[in-house]
């Protein structure tokens, strides 16, 4: 089918995902076809339980689909060994989680440096680069703070720094604003637009927060495990 090389950063064809078996079987995804271009921010929206997290987990290579094909940055997960997938994630994907998931014992800069440490960059160098990125994200002078000493919005900015520090070609964010108040949420989205969205990088943001819809270049509406509608806002053009 889709063996032709495409310009899409992410391409899903007929992706399904079942959880459980028999009576308890839940069809979280029922055949998702989706293209995500790079250089843009794609929002994945839809009601609770429609399969947003499941889809983004599959796109990020954290979950195997029950059926269908997923190609990310020109590579197909199906053809990768478990090890290769882990290495692929480390090199190419940045993660932002709803719960931040920062290591409480590491300072902000150290947390942001983790992907570089995973890649084997020496600690000093890694922390230095992470601290510079934190400055860029508006956390000047907070690199030495522990996560517990930062507000939710600040912690999420550290998480964004961590997701971007190794310059991944795909950034996946699951509900990055859900734990924040409206103001901090907008700040985070603005930051993602300004820093994360770049040529050569695709950004996927899962959200059910309609207040931030206007930040996306395209909005993919999921409903009951299927793509219902794709809305192109041309945000990129108007923004530029």
């Amino acid at each position: 089918m889709a063996s032709v090389a495409t310009e899409w950063a992410v391409e899903c064809r007929g992706v399904t995902k079942d959880f459980g078996q028999g009576e308890a079987k839940v069809q979280a995804l029922r055949g998702v076809d989706l293209e995500v271009p790079d250089g843009e921010m794609t929002l994945l929206v839809g009601p609770s339980g429609c399969g947003k997290t499941t889809l983004i987990s599959i796109i990020a290579g954290l979950l195997d689909p029950t059926a269908g094909e997923v190609s990310v940055l020109g590579a197909e997960y199906r053809r990768m060994s478990g090890r290769a997938k882990v290495a692929f994630r480390a090199a190419n994907i940045g993660f932002v989680f709803q719960q931040y998931n920062l290591l409480p014992a590491l300072s902000a800069a150290e947390n942001a440096a983790v992907p570089l440490l995973i890649a084997g960059v020496p600690r000093r160098e890694a922390v230095r680069r992470a601290a510079a990125l934190l400055d860029e994200l508006g956390l000047v002078g907070r690199g030495g703070s522990l996560p517990s000493q930062l507000s939710g919005g600040q912690q999420q900015r550290v998480a964004i720094a961590r997701a971007l520090v190794h310059e991944p070609r795909l950034l996946v964010c699951d509900e990055p604003t859900a734990a924040l108040d409206a103001h901090s949420g907008r700040n985070i989205m603005e930051l993602l637009r300004r820093i994360a969205v770049q040529p050569g990088r695709a950004v996927i943001v899962v959200t059910h927060d309609s207040r931030v819809f206007d930040f996306g270049d395209r909005i993919v509406h999921l409903s009951d495990g299927r793509v219902e509608d794709v809305e192109v806002t041309n945000h990129g053009e108007t923004d530029a």
Partner: peptide
């Protein structure tokens, strides 16, 4: 466990 999970997601092998 969550931290370990995050590390796993970010590409730390088992």
């Amino acid at each position: 466990l969550r931290q370990f999970g995050a590390l796993k997601a970010m590409g730390v092998s088992n």
